[in-house]
């Protein structure tokens, strides 16, 4: 059965888009501070999910990208086994790893934080999205040298081989050393095609174009 990209979103530390259109967040939001911008975006989305503030930056990015895509889906929060969440990035959870390392670096003051440590696994972002949306399907995380539309396409296509999966939330979500970006697609298996065809070329065009637009804004 053919697959199509139903919606896609992008979140960085200073902007957000859905299907290529900017999602309005108060202009002054963040003032260049990525954390503040993500919090402002959360409020603009009216998600009402206080757990958001407990997440690490990687999970916040992925969570917000998924909210942008799923906010208009109906019905929401109904348990679904046929939706998978598959994420990719370059630096795994290194941003949070560095935080945990800082907490244990000094032997005379070693107080590792359990709520930081649980985020020292990159796949937690997929778990957070699954929990929020009651998605009981496959959740996976792959680490790649760099963005690769081919790799994303291959892994997502494979996920449909599961026999149960009908839709995949697929994301590139990277947060480390100055990079803060999430690009997410909702890929659906459907009889009549609506949306963009799911192909390596299309995936790459969407990622590159969205990135370009975000840099210009």
């Amino acid at each position: 059965m053919p697959q199509a990209i139903k919606r896609y979103s992008c979140v960085t530390g200073r902007s957000a888009t859905v299907d290529g259109e900017a999602f309005p967040v108060a202009a002054e939001a963040g003032d260049g501070d990525e954390g503040k911008f993500l919090a402002a975006l959360y409020r603009a989305l009216k998600a009402d999910y206080p757990k958001f503030f407990k997440m690490d930056a990687l999970s916040k990015l992925g969570f917000l990208a998924s909210e942008l895509i799923l906010r208009d889906e109906a019905p929401r929060f109904v348990p679904r086994e046929d939706i998978a969440v598959v994420c990719f990035n370059r630096s795994a959870s290194l941003a949070t790893d560095v935080q945990h390392q800082a907490a244990i670096q000094r032997e005379d003051s070693c107080y590792p934080s359990p709520s930081v440590f649980v985020y020292t696994l990159p796949n937690i972002v997929a778990g957070e999205i699954a929990i929020r949306n009651k998605l009981l399907g496959e959740t996976s995380f792959y680490v790649c040298r760099e963005w690769s539309a081919q790799q994303v396409f291959r892994m997502v296509s494979h996920t449909f081989c599961d026999g149960c999966t009908r839709a995949v939330l697929a994301a590139w979500v990277e947060c480390f050393e100055g990079t803060c970006e999430a690009f997410m697609m909702l890929v659906e298996q459907q009889d009549g095609l609506s949306g963009l065809p799911f192909s390596v070329e299309q995936v790459d065009i969407l990622y590159q174009n969205t990135k370009l637009k975000l840099w210009k804004s």
Binding site: K51, Y111, P112, S113, P114, S115
Partner: peptide, 16 residues
């Protein structure tokens, strides 16, 4: 709305 990780975090707070 606290959970099990919050409880562990409170244990760290008590010690620190």
């Amino acid at each position: 709305g606290l959970d099990s990780i919050d409880a562990l975090e409170l244990i760290v707070l008590m010690e620190k």
